[in-house]
């Protein structure tokens, strides 16, 4: 089937996504998502309890665009960057034009003064959809392992 979802395409999307954030090309970040979409940063405890609220919650591409605009134009925070390290995606379902996977991540945050800390670990729970020639996230739940969150989550995970 032409345009079918393959492991290779999933790997390419995952790699491009973290490169986008870690290289501070955040203006391109919303383009990884379908519209409408669901992007939620939550914790394992909330997911287990069935709580829907997120630390970040966006259900349209417009909300993702607004988040980057706010980071660039409005919000005040110390200069920082992330380094995402991904584990291998475990493909849970692949129907050809829609697929689901689970991918472990580790994010180190590097502050402007050189301090580096493990910022978050967790799982990306993804649903993919083919949109034209591109593969997009129709849903990306970022499930952090810890119930503790750093004082600031400026950049998206």
């Amino acid at each position: 089937m032409p345009g079918a979802i393959t492991l290779e395409r999933i790997l390419a999307l995952q790699a491009a996504y973290i490169r986008c954030i870690d290289s501070n090309a955040l203006e391109s970040w919303p383009d990884f998502f379908a519209d409408p979409c669901l992007y939620v940063v939550t914790t394992a405890e909330n997911r287990k309890a069935g709580f829907e609220a997120g630390i970040i919650y966006a259900d349209t591409k417009g909300m993702l665009i607004d988040r980057i605009a706010a980071l660039r134009e409005a919000n005040v925070y110390e200069k920082q960057s992330y380094r995402h390290i991904l584990g291998l995606p475990n493909i849970l379902k692949n129907g050809g034009d829609e697929a689901e996977s689970e991918t472990p991540f580790l994010v180190v945050r590097i502050m402007h003064d050189g301090q580096s800390d493990i910022f978050a670990t967790g799982l990306y729970l993804d649903t993919y959809r083919v949109a034209g020639n591109d593969l997009k996230f129709s849903k990306r739940l970022v499930v952090c392992d810890s119930s503790r969150v750093d004082t600031l989550m400026a950049l998206p995970l």
């Binding site: 940063v41 997120g54 259900d59 988040r67 004082t151 989550m153």
Partner: peptide, 15 residues
Amino acid sequence: LRQNNLAGPAGYVSM
């Protein structure tokens, strides 16, 4: 759920 974006560690109004 949408307006929760306004507050918290990633809150638009108060991060």
